[in-house]
Computed example of a mutant assay.
Amino acid sequence: MHRALLLWPAAALALLGCAAHTPAEQLAPASDTVRVCEGSRCVDQHRSHQRWQPPAADAAAERRLEALSRLAAQDPKAAYDLGLRLLRGDGVARDSFQAIEWLRQAGDHGLVAAQLALGRIYLQGLEEMGPDPAEAEAWLGRAAAQGNKEAGRLLPQAQAAKRDAQAGYQVRAAERSAWGRWYAAAPYYWYWGGAGWILY
């Protein structure tokens, strides 16, 4: 009790100090400058100064990419090349989504190399994208139908993975339907006792 009485005057003085300032003064920044550091070098500069510089673009690389993109829209082999470059980050920023889009365009136009590549990608999965055995089977089947021996060798693996995935899905669906049963009977560890939570 005595400690609270001693702290009260200090708190009152702090509040009076805040009340002495106008709202605009309370919200105003303490200084018009900020310290900006890059590596081991720091400088003070005005808050309104902008220093961000976009990365320098390689104009020649951008022209090559634009030319390949235009060519890829017309030629399946160029679409395949662009897809590979995007997968590898070879001369372009890595972009697996765009890579697959270009490979699909090439595969849809009958390019066996693109169909095989898509079959492998969907069979194994890629980065954030997990495997998709049904897609793998479809693309490998298209390549195998054109006589590609590697696709013919991988096709049974894709079909087995598809069967396993379907079986796994059926198990998960059964588990989901049974989910409501377990929580109805599951006991709690804590209960509310009026003054707070109490562990059984």
Rank of each mutant, 00 (worst) to 15 (best):
D108C: 03
R172N: 07
A67P: 03
S40H: 08
I121A: 01
A19Y: 02
W197T: 06
Y200A: 04
A195F: 13
Q74V: 04
Q157P: 07
G147Q: 07
A136D: 15
W197L: 10
A161M: 09
A60C: 09
G110L: 04
A145T: 00
E66T: 08
R94C: 00
P55R: 15
S96F: 07
K77I: 05
G125Y: 11
L13I: 01
D75R: 06
G168N: 14
M1D: 15
R163I: 05
W182Q: 10
F97G: 11
A178T: 06
E175L: 13
W8C: 05
L6Q: 03
D164Q: 13
L111W: 00
E38W: 05
S40L: 03
I121L: 09
A24Q: 14
L87N: 10
A138S: 10
C37R: 08
Q157G: 04
Q26H: 12
R94H: 00
P131F: 02
L199G: 08
E150P: 07
R120V: 05
Q98I: 07
A12W: 06
A99M: 10
Q115H: 02
A165P: 03
A136K: 13
Y191F: 14
W179K: 11
A186H: 11
A72F: 12
Q157C: 04
G125I: 08
R142P: 01
L27Y: 10
G147H: 05
G130R: 10
L16Y: 07
Q146R: 15
G147Y: 11
S96W: 04
E66P: 02
L111K: 01
G141T: 06
R41P: 00
V171E: 14
G125L: 13
E101G: 13
L68C: 12
E137H: 12
L87K: 09
S96N: 14
I198E: 15
A28V: 03
G91H: 01
P131H: 08
L84T: 11
Q45V: 15
A12K: 01
Y189W: 12
Q45L: 15
G130N: 12
G194I: 02
A78T: 11
P131R: 11
A174L: 03
R94V: 01
G168W: 14
A93S: 11
A134W: 12
P29S: 10
A136F: 15
A113K: 03
L16E: 02
W139T: 06
E135Q: 14
R51W: 09
A20Q: 05
G39H: 02
Q146V: 13
A138D: 11
S40M: 09
L155I: 03
S40G: 12
Y188T: 12
A106N: 01
D44Q: 01
A20E: 11
L6F: 09
C42Y: 00
H2A: 05
Q98F: 06
E150W: 09
A134R: 15
L116C: 04
D75H: 09
D75T: 05
A165E: 06
R85C: 03
R120Q: 14
A145I: 01
L7I: 05
D58I: 00
L65G: 00
